[in-house]
Design a binder for these strands. Structure first.
Lengths: 386, 386
DNA sequence: GACACTTTGTATATCCATTATACAAAGTTT
DNA sequence: AAACTTTGTATAATGGATATACAAAGTGTC
């Protein structure tokens, strides 16, 4: 039994349009809203007044006249509530408190040494509580938390497998939600990153993008029509395990020649270790000092990255490919090799439209995406889009 | 200025729901419709009566009583109009006339030897006219034509490149529409095939599928949430040119190690030629007679197909992968090698959900998908879905 | 067969969004 | 100061959906 149409639905649709327009273009008058949305003046008035009652919008006073009565300017009440975003990495927990526009108002980072789910959960809980304590008073309080996890997450917020954390079948969503007392949403780290860039970063204007989280492994957050493509079980984007070398290096996953064996941070570090370099930071530092070996390693990983990116270009015809996570730090050395490989290996028509860029939110793509997930869940009750 | 909500929209939404339900479950009474859709009895009555006026639905008489007044049974008027589907292959033109439910009521096939767009267009036009002449009289007549082309097609129905036809920048949609006098829709062959299987074939119940057209090359029609994923310019699905062997065989596209160099019909035939076999039919015949060489060739191509399919499984997490076009004919020899390769090379969670099957419409996936495109365009004026 | 009960489908009233119209308030321009 | 503009609200009209009542046409039971 699908959702049918009635007046209530119409109102939801129009209210969504009005609120979205205010969020995107405020400050704005009712008259301007009517012009921009095509809704009748009276309709806009009614809806805006309801939004004001709900504390989601408020009036900031009069604007400039253009030959008549001065308009009352409206703005989105971005501090009507706050959201928490958590990036649950392998070696760290990064947590932020944001307002409803995704602006960071509190941040907290702590190191992690893997460990049992219970212990890590405790730490996450503490981090969230401490951020919550720092949140200014607001009508809605903390509207929810979003967590981005470096692992495979299913539709029910269960972490099926997080190899680098050593987790299997952890009911993260349920456990955290019980402890925190507000809604919790779980996503994998690449999807969270894609959401973050889509909403607040380099992909704000884009529609079809692929966000690549290049760290220990390679994961993709795939966005089609500004919506995450999650796959039938929520497992899509495990693109690091696609084969780019039929009889290539063995991978932990059981396959041979997986992309991430050639293009991930781990794959560079494996080679770097033969040069006596143990940490990614050191390798970056070496490359900065123009060490030919370090630069060569990055050139190699860049070419390998380019191969997989060309595959993405041919498969998805996206308008934008964003490279995120640790590997962004090597941008200056890998950019050219990537572009060369893509130029050689992708089809002209798709390549023309595909921009390749680096994540603009830096290390914060995933954590902001997670926060956005919470914010969007908060609004989703009253939202309908066509 | 987005579409806003009003009563007209509500009516469209509900009418769409009612018509879709009738199409899917007819024969059906108004009372049953009310139950199934959740719409009020009176609303259903009004909408059904309008659909009857529009000749899209009619009453076939009384049904069984279940302890009260007998219901009036309604059915979709599937012959209220007809659609034309054309599969414009490299060596043939296959055209069908279908009713509004996609059932074939006329078919026509002719050989093609490549050639200039003008000549081919003329042939297509003649084929369509001859099918149109055979269509029974109906309220709406021919509602439109859909064409599936073996090449790269953009959003405006321009065939940017059809290497095997030798075409470049042919304004197929405009040219045909002018000549035929009814709406024409152009798709590439893989997208058309995906649509066909989605609507009338093995994917009728599925939501996220990848249809692989494995012929001269390999193209994919990617369906997410029962919608074609077209990419930002309409060029998505050129999956045959993804790299599975970094330094592999050279491809016409300029890349090395493209999947279709190992897993397409052409790639098998290239090997077959060294055995003195010139036609795919011969190779199939040989394999039927259990020729070890022929069977070995198919085993090899099966394994290669499996590699790319595993990549698809990991990337998309689809519920269904359909293998279509010429290669379906080798099903009995390639099925096991494909499954073995996928089992070795894809991640367990995604693999569990991914069924791999062969196109159930056989050689007609694309032509029926093309016809469906025309039908759905005809209905789209009055359709809104949430 | 009479009676009670069900089921179907329509007719009419009510509800509630939007739009249309009118208008008051508060500007600018000449 | 007078004429015109612009903004925002109040009230009526419009057109959908739902709610209610009811007639028509069944079934089942004694």
């Amino acid at each position: 039994m699908q959702t049918t149409g009635d007046q209530h639905l119409v109102k939801k649709i129009n209210k969504t349009i009005v609120l979205d327009t205010i969020i995107k273009h405020s400050p704005l008058s009712r008259a301007q809203l009517s012009d921009m949305t095509g809704l009748h003046k009276g309709t806009v008035s009614t809806l805006v007044n309801e939004l004001i009652d709900e504390k989601l919008v408020y009036e900031i006073g009069l604007g400039r006249s253009s030959g008549g009565r001065k308009p009352v300017m409206l703005v989105f009440h971005k501090t009507a509530g706050y959201a928490v975003g958590v990036d649950l990495g392998v070696r760290y927990i990064l947590a932020v408190l944001t307002d409803l526009e995704g602006r960071i108002v509190g941040e907290l980072q702590l190191d992690l040494e893997g460990g049992e789910p219970e212990g890590v959960l405790k730490l996450v809980e503490e981090a969230v509580h401490s951020l919550k304590a720092g949140a200014p008073p607001s009508p809605y309080g903390i509207v929810g938390a979003g967590i981005g996890v470096a692992g495979i997450v299913d539709d029910n917020g269960i972490v099926l497998l997080a190899p680098n954390l050593g987790w299997e079948n952890v009911e993260l969503q349920r456990l955290l939600q019980e402890k925190l007392g507000f809604p919790v949403a779980i996503d994998n780290e690449a999807n969270a990153g894609a959401l973050g860039e889509l909403q607040y970063g380099a992909a704000r204007e884009a529609s079809d993008i692929v966000y690549l989280s290049v760290g220990t492994g390679i994961g993709a957050g795939i966005v089609i029509g500004r919506q995450l493509m999650k796959g039938s079980g929520g497992f899509s984007g495990e693109i690091g395990h696609t084969t780019i070398e039929t009889n290539g290096k063995k991978c932990r996953c059981g396959n041979k020649g997986c992309w991430e064996q050639y293009a991930s941070e781990s794959s560079v570090m494996e080679k770097a270790r033969t040069l006596g370099i143990g940490k990614f930071d050191e390798l970056i530092a070496l490359a900065r000092r123009e060490s030919p070996e370090a630069v060569r390693l990055f050139h190699e990983v860049g070419e390998s990255l380019g191969i997989g990116i060309a595959n993405i270009v041919n498969t998805f015809n996206p308008e934008l490919i964003l490279i995120g996570n640790q590997m962004t730090r090597a941008e200056q050395w890998i950019r050219n090799p990537i572009e060369r490989a893509v130029a050689h290996r992708s089809l002209p028509y798709s390549r023309q439209q595909a921009q390749i860029r680096f994540a603009s939110l830096d290390t914060h793509s995933a954590v902001l995406g997670a926060a956005h997930h919470a914010i969007s869940a908060f609004f989703s009750k009253d939202r309908v889009t066509l």
